[in-house]
Simulated scan of single mutants.
Amino acid sequence: MSLADSPAAPEVPVRGRPRSEAVERAIVEGVMKLLEEGVPLAELSIERIARTAGVGKATIYRRWSGKEALFVDVIRTAEPPDPLLPGTSMRDDLVALLEQLRRRGLMTRSSALLHNVYAQMKSSPKIWAAYHGTVVEPRRRLQVEILRRGQADGELRADVDVELLSDLFVGPMLLRTVMRPDADLPEGLSEQIVDALLEGLLPVSSPSA
């Protein structure tokens, strides 16, 4: 059998990075377009998203396991990016995390789309669970790790419950961004919250002999 008559090798799909990013961006923008047109999350199907983005359903399923995972990426695209932690101290890292939450609150208030999506997402258990598992919980684990590192480095009292303390840091910002939409979110609020809490949580210096 000649080389020309040899069976062709199975085609291996090549996912070039620029092309992949362009396709994924088109899909995410397609979802955003439908949401901006007022289509509820519950009525968005993979078929409709594929038509809007100009791709096949298989293209979407190759990148996301389903609607829930896709919606989480759409929301993350609309949110501020995760902060780069300065790593200079526990205090500075905590401020960076809270600042991201403050900016997200400002964006949600200024974006009717984001506001509506968050409201709908909470009534869709699968979507909320996917968002919580891939966005909320990793951020919370990171904050707890920062607090534990602060204890190990002597920046925080060793007897403090870091799981509870993590909620205490985030609580005031969540209250202002979620439960009090009329409350101010001024610059410097993140520093104010962190410093107010840390003032009573620093290690107590032992009296000199």
Rank of each mutant, 00 (worst) to 15 (best):
T108Q: 08
L114N: 08
R104Y: 00
L114G: 01
S111P: 13
Y131G: 10
V117C: 04
A129T: 01
S123I: 06
N116K: 11
P125S: 08
Y118T: 08
M107L: 08
A129N: 11
S123F: 04
S124H: 11
W128G: 09
Q120L: 12
M107G: 01
R109D: 03
H115V: 11
S111H: 04
G105T: 03
M107H: 04
P125M: 07
S123R: 08
L106H: 01
K126Q: 14
A112T: 09
N116S: 15
L114S: 07
S110V: 05
R109T: 09
R104K: 13
G105H: 00
G105N: 02
Y131L: 12
R104W: 02
I127H: 15
L113W: 14
P125D: 09
T108V: 05
R109L: 12
M121S: 10
Y118S: 09
N116F: 10
R109A: 03
N116E: 13
Q120C: 03
K122I: 12
L113K: 10
N116D: 13
S124M: 14
L113F: 04
K126S: 15
S124D: 14
K126C: 06
M121Q: 13
A112F: 14
A119K: 11
K122V: 15
S110E: 08
T108C: 01
T108E: 11
R109P: 13
V117N: 08
S124R: 11
A129P: 00
I127F: 12
Q120V: 07
A129Q: 00
L106S: 00
K126H: 14
A119L: 02
Q120P: 08
S124Y: 10
S124C: 13
T108N: 02
I127G: 13
R102F: 02
L114H: 07
A119M: 13
Q120H: 09
R103W: 00
P125W: 05
L101R: 14
Y131R: 13
A112G: 15
H115R: 12
S123K: 06
M107R: 15
K122P: 00
S111L: 07
L101H: 02
N116V: 00
L106F: 05
M121I: 11
N116W: 01
G105Y: 12
S123D: 14
L106K: 00
I127T: 10
S111F: 09
L114C: 05
A112N: 12
P125V: 12
W128C: 14
K126W: 12
M107Q: 02
L101I: 02
A130K: 10
R104T: 07
I127Y: 10
A130W: 06
S111W: 08
G105I: 02
Y131F: 15
